[in-house]
Design a protein around this nucleic acid. Structure first.
Lengths: 194, 194
DNA sequence: TTTTATGCTTGATAAATATCAAGTGTATTT
DNA sequence: AAATACACTTGATATTTATCAAGCATAAAA
C-alpha cells in the first residue's frame, strides 16, 4: 500500500529517499478508508488532515443557498485532498469533501506534516512543488473560467483531464465546469470529442 | 524606495532582517520604471523576472482569437507580477502584462531569486507564504467563477477588492469578472453598493 | 422479477447575458 | 477653443445558457 506513495514522493521531491527517511514518512501518515458517499469534510468543520488518495475518487464542493452543489475540485489516485485554507489556518471551511467511490487515504495532520518537513527535507521539497503546481493549475482554471464559452470549457477539460469523463457522472463534470447538466449534454451531442 | 520593500519582506517572512541580509536582497533586485501602456511581458516571451510593484498598477491578460482581452490578474503597490509558469519553467507565456499607470518595479531573475533564497532564509519563507496565499486566493476565485451569477461576482469583488473600483476602468473590471462592460454597468445601476 | 434510483437526453420555454449601436459627459490632445 | 479619445450608459435585439418537465435506458435494490 505504501509503495506507490514512496515512489510518488521520490518523483515529486526529485530525490530518492532512504529507508530511514521513509520510516519517518510512514510514522507521520495514518491510513484511512472511507466508503462511497461518506464525508471527509463538511461545512463548518476545521480541516484537520491533508489526505493523499491511494485508491478511489473524491470531490470538493460548496453548497449555495438554493442547495445547488458546485464542485471545485476532483481528486483521484495520487492526488491530495484538503481545504488548504482551513488546514493551514485552522479556520472553519465552507466546503464539503466526500467520496465518489470507496476510497483509501493516507492522512497527515498539520503538526505531523510540519515536523516531517523539518526532519525530512524531501517532504519540504514535495509540498513546495505541489504548491507551485497547484498555483499554476488554479491560474489556468481561472483563465478558462473567465474567457471560454461553455463549449470551449468542455473541450479544454476534455483535453486536460479526459479521465474525468470516464470516471465521473456527467452532471458532476457540468458542476465542475460551472454549467448546467443539460447544457453539457447538448454540447457533447454536437461535439466531435466524446 | 527600498524601505517599504524591506518592511514588506519582514512582514511576510515573519522575521526582522539584518542590514547585511537586506544588502543581499538589494543586490538581487534591480529597479525598473515602465510607463503607462508599456508591456512588461507579451505572448510568446519567456517571463524572465518576478516583479514587485513599488508604485503603480498593472494587469495580466490573455487575448483570444477574436481579439478580446481577458484580465486574469491586477497588480498594485506591494503585489508581485509574473507569469509563474513561464518564470519557473522558462516556457513561452500566453499572457500579456502591461502598465495601467506609470509604474516602478523591483525585479529579480530566477537565478538570483534561487540564490537569494539559499543565502537568506527569510526570502524562502516569503515565497512560501506567497505561494500559499496565492493558491488559496486562486481557489476562492475559481469558486466564485463557477458558482456565482454576474451580480454576485460583482458584489463579491466589491467586498474583497473595493480598491479596484477606485483605480481601474470599469470595462477592465468587467473583463476581470468575465462579464461584458454593459452588463457590469447595468448591475451597478441596480446595486446598492457603488 | 419487480421496483426504485441513477444517469443521461430531449424539447419547450424562460432568464441571463452578450452584442450592436448610439449618445453623453469628461478628460486629453492639438 | 476645437478636436479627439476615453469611460460609461442606455436601448434594442440576439444569443447563450438555465430551468422545467418528460422520457428512456441501465444499474442497483427489494
Amino acid at each position: 500500500m505504501y509503495l506507490p506513495f514512496r515512489k510518488y514522493i521520490d518523483e515529486y521531491s526529485g530525490d530518492t529517499m532512504t529507508d530511514d527517511e521513509f520510516a519517518l514518512v510512514k510514522a507521520a501518515f495514518t491510513p484511512k478508508k472511507i466508503r462511497k458517499k461518506q464525508y471527509l469534510l463538511q461545512e463548518g468543520d476545521v480541516c484537520k488532515h491533508l489526505s493523499f488518495i491511494i485508491k478511489g475518487a473524491m470531490r470538493q464542493y460548496t453548497v449555495d443557498e438554493k442547495g445547488n452543489e458546485h464542485i471545485v475540485r476532483f481528486g483521484i489516485e495520487n492526488w491530495w485532498m484538503a481545504d488548504r485554507e482551513s488546514f493551514e489556518f485552522s479556520t472553519p471551511t465552507i466546503y464539503y469533501i466526500d467520496a465518489l467511490e470507496d476510497t483509501e487515504l493516507l492522512q497527515v495532520s498539520l503538526a505531523n506534516l510540519t515536523e516531517l518537513k523539518q526532519t525530512f527535507p524531501g517532504m519540504n521539497k514535495l509540498t513546495l512543488a505541489l504548491d507551485k503546481r497547484g498555483h499554476i493549475a488554479a491560474q489556468k482554471r481561472i483563465t478558462a473560467a473567465i474567457s471560454l464559452t461553455a463549449e470551449e470549457k468542455y473541450q479544454n477539460l476534455f483535453k486536460i483531464h479526459p479521465i474525468f469523463f470516464q470516471r465521473f457522472p456527467q452532471a458532476m463534470i457540468a458542476s465542475y465546469l460551472g454549467i448546467s447538466p443539460e447544457t453539457l449534454s447538448r454540447i457533447r451531442k454536437n461535439s466531435i470529442l466524446k
